[in-house]
Design a protein around this nucleic acid. Structure first.
Ligand code: MN
Ligand code: MN
Ligand code: ZN
Ligand code: ZN
Lengths: 132, 132
DNA sequence: TTCCACTTTATAATGGTTCTAAATAGCTGT
DNA sequence: ACAGCTATTTAGAACCATTATAAAGTGGAA
């Protein structure tokens, strides 16, 4: 199985739970955005055994640290994650709290002219809030 | 007092607490970013009477709704607010969780080419994460 | 197989935020 | 100035996403 290698190469043991979460997160036609609650539901729908909520949190954080998931900065009581780890930007639909990927060509290059010394830029993220 | 008018014109009664919070938030040399905890501290430092935490939350939300404060989208367990309500972008220092204003001239105009029909753009916000 | 560090798990704890309902204080009309 | 009404404040409880705990289970090296 392809995910076993991926996990081993990251120093993460390929446990049953992690492999199942990999299936849900990465064995998909397209990338997607999710909150932990939504992921918990997806997992319940797709697998038969139970995975504890703590393991879901642990795994998501482990995957994020390894760079397999990204957190999206939005104002919400829940944390949003993205399986699309390429540099890209987002529409945020205030009505339903859903994120939509923006292609870089939809936004154009962003060139930050100001520098803060001793610091380097880790990421540049654009959030475009949508209303009716 | 200038804040009395401001509040009355917004349909908010100019209570002692609101006026004191106005002093802390708006009677300043420059704009600033804050969390509720930080604001609570600032209030404790600057005024003698106590203002309850509930009132601070209520007031911040009331001011935000009236457009006197903005929320900044960042990934944190606390909500960040800004007394600078002009359209502008931010550096986010991951080390200490502090925000720094970016001038629009530091970022350049952002032109979102894609449209979502039935929706209009409410805001465009750029967050530039900084690391060492 | 043995062993141990890593992982999972149920559950408790944490902490920012929101809710509740009773007390207080603006404001309008008299 | 006063009454009456509504908005506001407040202490404390409730909420709930997330993190911590610590005991049981598991992967994999030897
Ligand atoms: Mn979540
Ligand atoms: Mn806060
Ligand atoms: Zn995305
Ligand atoms: Zn700002």
């Amino acid at each position: 199985m392809k995910f076993i290698e991926k996990l081993r190469n990251s120093g993460l043991r390929p446990t049953k739970q992690r492999l199942q979460i990999c299936e849900v997160l990465f064995n998909t036609e397209r990338t997607f955005h999710f909150t932990i609650n939504e992921l918990e539901q997806k997992i319940k729908d797709k697998i038969d055994n139970k995975i504890s909520l703590a393991t879901i949190y642990n795994t998501v954080h482990a995957f994020e640290k390894k760079g397999y998931l990204k957190q999206i900065p939005v104002n919400s009581n829940q944390t949003y994650f993205d399986t699309n780890i390429t540099d890209h930007h987002h529409f945020y639909n205030l009505k339903d709290g859903k994120l939509i990927d923006l292609e870089n060509s939809d936004v154009g290059p962003i060139n930050i002219k100001r520098k803060i010394d001793g610091k380097k830029i880790k990421s540049i993220e654009v959030l475009v809030k949508l209303e009716d």
